[in-house]
């Protein structure tokens, strides 16, 4: 089975975000694999182990993203592809990313593609479904369970807290929701092996894409931090009186109950 996983390098969730010169400052920041993509990698490895085949992880980014790809290889993925757009593109949006990934995948034999349901940085959750549509394959988002039997697929997906059971078939793209599995940590032998696993580096030229083909449809014109919240009021006195005061404040000052 040919399994592909779309991954993104993102800021560690512990990071505070700062803005300098109108851009998110990356100085000294720690980077991780987008947490939802880790579920996708773990699931891909489990599906491969149960069905044979190969797991290829793909990312778009600069040289720095190699580290996250090596981590995925250390978890157990077989191959990695880094599509380096750093020299070619200043601006990207979801249209751009999806087009590039679909261009890479279009002549591959694809059985299953996995991705996170959303990246915790941009937060739009578009790239997975867009890629599926460009490839003309079906997709199911926010999945919490995946069962594959031959080419038939049974999925449980999370829909705003409800769960839906879905029957469909390969080829398919799915996006991972929390709860799908418990991503493994790379083992030491895994890390050693990952250094020797194939990591292919491509640029737009290699995909026969011109910059114009993937020009972003939207443009970010400003990035800013939310206003700092003024310190709130810690109520004092007997707990019973604090509660009376709180309910009164919520009703008469904040007017939210």
């Amino acid at each position: 089975m040919n399994i592909y996983v779309l991954v993104k390098r993102t800021f560690d969730t512990e990071e505070k975000i700062t803005v300098s010169n109108g851009k998110i400052s990356e100085d000294g920041a720690e980077f991780i694999i987008n947490p939802y993509d880790e579920y996708a990698i773990e699931e891909a490895i489990q599906v491969r182990d149960a069905n044979d085949g190969e797991v290829t992880v793909i990312t778009i980014g600069g040289e720095d993203a190699e580290k996250q790809l090596r981590t995925a290889l250390a978890m157990g993925a077989d191959k990695a592809v880094l599509i380096d757009t750093e020299d070619d593109l200043d601006e990207m949006d979801e249209f751009t990313s999806a087009k590039i990934i679909a261009e890479y995948l279009k002549d591959k034999e694809v059985d299953l593609i996995l991705a996170g349901n959303v990246a915790i940085d941009g937060g739009s959750g578009q790239v997975g479904p867009r890629v599926a549509e460009l490839l003309g394959i079906n997709y199911v988002t926010t999945i919490t369970n995946l069962e594959i039997n031959g080419t038939s697929v049974k999925i449980i997906r999370d829909v705003e807290g409800d769960s839906e059971t879905i029957e469909t078939s390969l080829p398919l793209l799915v996006t991972a929701q929390q709860g799908l599995n418990e991503p493994r940590y790379p083992s030491l032998p895994g890390i050693m092996k990952a250094k020797k696993k194939p990591l292919e580096k491509l640029e737009l030229d290699d995909l026969d894409l011109e910059e114009d083909d993937v020009e972003a449809k939207t443009q970010t014109i400003e990035i800013y931090l939310p206003p700092q919240k003024a310190a709130g009021r810690i109520l004092e006195g007997e707990v019973a009186n604090q509660v009376i005061e709180l309910v009164n404040l919520l009703k008469n000052e904040a007017k939210v109950i």
Binding site: I17, I24, G123, K217, T218, Q219, I221, E222, P226
Partner: peptide, 17 residues
């Protein structure tokens, strides 16, 4: 729209189309 789950915000415009 919020980015980084609301740790920051961005202003976006549609280019054309």
């Amino acid at each position: 729209r919020p980015i980084f789950s609301g740790k920051a915000f961005e202003k976006v415009k549609n280019k054309d189309g």
